[in-house]
């Protein structure tokens, strides 16, 4: 990955034009030929530096629901609890973090009612309280990760 690749990644994290020749427009901004941009972008995707190039949907606007939840898993049952949570197809991310609240996971469902059902099932199966922290407000961040 060289400086041109980095410039492409940083530029395309901020957005992509919606017009007939969007790559042409981006390549002019970056000062490289369009063909080179296409080739480099394809390579970054192929080698896995980029996981995706396309839309990020707004879950709630799509009719779905998302929440961030956490649980205090006792040390000796930790792996078992993590496994129970991971088994739910509605659990999208699950991270262990250094805190009493040591498992943090995102629940994503097709409807908001379903979030409560999933939380209830997790509580029944783990016999632990699930802390539910849905977002009240999202603050817009322009650049995700500087390359």
């Amino acid at each position: 990955m060289d400086d041109t690749d980095k410039a492409i990644i940083n530029y395309l994290q901020k957005g992509f034009p919606i017009c007939e020749s969007p790559y042409q427009l981006v390549s002019e901004q970056l000062g490289i030929p369009e063909a080179e941009l296409l080739q480099r972008l394809q390579k970054l995707l192929d080698e896995g530096t980029l996981s995706r190039f396309g839309p990020m949907y707004h879950a709630e606007a799509m009719g779905g629901a998302l929440t961030l939840a956490a649980i205090k898993a006792p040390e000796q049952q930790f792996d078992e609890i993590a496994e129970i949570i991971n088994r739910f197809p509605e659990v999208a991310h699950n991270y262990q973090r250094n805190h009493d609240l040591n498992l943090w996971f995102v629940i994503a469902t097709e409807s908001s009612d379903r979030i409560q059902e999933v939380i209830q099932s997790i509580e029944e199966q783990t016999r632990l309280q699930v802390y539910n922290m849905p977002k009240c407000k999202e603050y817009f961040v322009q650049l995700q990760l500087e390359a």
């Binding site: 901020k14 957005g15 980029l50 996981s51 839309p55 707004h58």
Partner: peptide, 14 residues
């Protein structure tokens, strides 16, 4: 409905 159009990077790779 679409929040953003663009690339999504793999943290680790960068």
């Amino acid at each position: 409905l679409i929040k953003r159009l663009g690339v999504i990077v793999k943290h680790q790779r960068l």
